[in-house]
Amino acid sequence: MRCPFCGNEDTQVKDSRPTEDSSAIRRRRFCPGCGARFTTFERVQLRELTVVKSTGAREPFDRDKLLRSMRIALRKRPVDADRLERVINSLVRQLESSGESEIPSKQIGEMVMITLQTLDPVAYIRYASVYKDFREAADFHQFVDQLAPEPTND
């Protein structure tokens, strides 16, 4: 493993242990070149996934990109990092076990929307505002109105 600080290719593993949900191996590493310590994670990958963009462009699936987008939506929301990690692992497993190696970006976006809707309603609206390309306040209003249950006249 290459050191992210100095680029030395000869780093040493000092400690290895499974993550809390046993979905990855956490390794603490040491670089003898610069003395830096850093952590890496090793995960099982069932298949190489390719994301097909709406433009037709293809790019390798990036788990970290999915994690970043959900973290942005969940910023300052009461969802802890472990729960988010489990949700991401679940989404990636669903994609890998779908049987398809090429996944449309729209399908990934819809899966994230469904997940966030049950995880945190504010994060769901935040993500939807980017995913559905809200242009003005009325777009938010219309979207939220669709979410709110109709008042009952009892």
Rank of each mutant, 00 (worst) to 15 (best):
R2F: 14
C3Q: 05
P4N: 07
F5L: 08
C6K: 01
C6G: 03
G7K: 02
E9W: 05
E9Q: 14
E9A: 13
Q12F: 08
R17L: 01
T19I: 04
T19V: 02
S23I: 07
I25N: 04
I25Q: 07
R27E: 00
R29S: 08
F30R: 04
F30V: 01
G33K: 08
G35L: 02
G35H: 06
T39A: 05
V44E: 15
V44D: 14
Q45N: 13
R47N: 08
R47S: 09
R47Y: 05
L49Q: 07
V52A: 11
K53F: 03
S54L: 10
A57D: 15
R58L: 05
E59W: 04
D62Y: 07
D64R: 14
D64Q: 14
K65Q: 11
R68S: 11
M70P: 06
M70A: 08
L74T: 13
R75M: 05
K76A: 00
P78A: 07
V79G: 01
V79Q: 09
D82H: 11
R83K: 08
R83A: 05
R83W: 00
R86K: 12
R86N: 07
V87I: 14
R93F: 06
E96P: 04
E100S: 12
E102P: 07
Q107V: 15
G109T: 05
E110K: 09
T115M: 10
D120S: 02
P121Q: 14
A128F: 02
S129N: 02
V130H: 04
D133P: 04
A138F: 00
D139M: 00
Q142V: 02
F143Q: 00
F143R: 03
V144R: 06
D145R: 10
L147T: 01
T152I: 05
N153M: 10
N153R: 13
